[in-house]
Amino acid sequence: MDEAKTDGFKPNIVAIVCNWCTYIAADTAGVARMKYSPYVRIVRVMCSGRVDPQMVLWAFRHGADGVLICGCHPGDCHYKEGNYKAYRRYILLKRMVKQMGIDERRLRLEWISAGEAPRVKEVFNSFAEEIRSLGPLKLPVEAGSHE
């Protein structure tokens, strides 16, 4: 974090997280006043299975240097198996972003259960640090509307 300040690069990170696990854990991390990287912006969906690959590409296109997807641990999905679907899409998506010339490390999937507040801090910090070390993505930012 401090290093990020010194070299002036503040990464733009979007975390698309599941309502039932990571979002709760992030709230709990707040209640416990855990401090973590301020560059991760949480966008809530009901399930990691809701994460359309287009959302991830959209985020990169609109200036994200890294995208994090967080869901429930395998077997713990509130909707039985949405996280497995997220995982399958993620594997393909990683290959796809690579073909587009985006370092695949800029996309990460993590399982964080509702009880794992310390892991929110850990994952957010380590991802922010990774993106910081990778530097800005420098895609030409699309100015157009998304409709």
Binding site: D52, H62, A64
Partner: peptide, 19 residues
Amino acid sequence: LFKDQQVMAEIKGVLAAMR
């Protein structure tokens, strides 16, 4: 409540502010 447009607008919004 989680339409493509809604989620993507939110993503774009948080990123626009960061820039």
